[in-house]
Simulated scan of single mutants.
Amino acid sequence: MASRFSAAELAAARDRTIDDVLPAPGDPPLRVLFCGINPGLVSAATGHHFARPGNRFWPVLHDAGFTPRLLRPAEQDELRGLGLGITNMVARTTARADELSDDELRAGGERLRELVAAERPRWLAVVGVTAYRVAFAAPRAAVGPQERTLGDTGIWVLPNPSGLNAHWSRAAMAEEFARLREAAEAAQASGDAQA
């Protein structure tokens, strides 16, 4: 759990960004690149993705079988060895994602296209259907796999794991994350069989 920060420390975090978690030389290929909307204040203050207490990303990732144990945000670099990564649609830190403009989200969608072209994950998993709809001009998109791809990369929209998203329980989120994990494993098995 993240330590407590003063109001001044959180205010100062608005000027920070968080580095992406991407494969380094020698790491397995990137199976799934998880994409948050943008860093929150606690994440920016710690330098770790999904670090706000109450955010369900790390527990749901474990519940869905992506990680062998529950990782803390400070252990985010362990994802690389599992073929997983994390980025954000928008780099700007805010207290709430609804502080972002549609223009920022659309620009974030363009940045994601470039990042996916460079990193070539099997799946891009966007956590937040509303942000995805704006960034990719897909107003009717729903949670789940999308028809659209980015080259060979499939897109899967996942529910936002923020504690503020009361529409999804942790168990329901874990089921959706597990559907993505199963698709990623099937794609990897298919690729291994063809190699």
Rank of each mutant, 00 (worst) to 15 (best):
R4C: 12
F5M: 13
A8D: 12
A11W: 11
R14V: 04
R14Q: 12
T17P: 02
D20H: 14
P25S: 00
P29L: 03
V32F: 08
C35Y: 03
N38C: 05
N38Y: 01
N38Q: 01
L41D: 00
L41Y: 05
V42Q: 04
V42G: 06
R52F: 07
P53D: 14
G54C: 11
N55M: 12
H62M: 09
F66H: 13
P73D: 03
P73Y: 08
E75Q: 15
L79Y: 01
L84T: 06
N88H: 08
M89I: 12
A91F: 02
A91N: 07
R92D: 00
A95P: 12
A97H: 00
L100W: 00
S101I: 02
D102V: 01
D102F: 10
D103V: 15
L105R: 14
G109P: 13
L115P: 03
R120C: 03
V126H: 01
T130N: 14
A137F: 03
A137H: 15
P139S: 02
V143N: 09
P145L: 13
E147L: 15
T149L: 02
D152G: 14
T153D: 04
I155S: 06
V157M: 00
P159H: 03
N160T: 01
P161N: 02
H167R: 15
S169I: 04
A171Q: 10
A172E: 12
E182Q: 13
A183W: 05
A183Q: 08
A183V: 10
A183Y: 01
S190P: 02
G191A: 15
D192M: 04
D192Y: 04
A193D: 10
Q194T: 11
A195N: 11
A195L: 12
A195T: 11
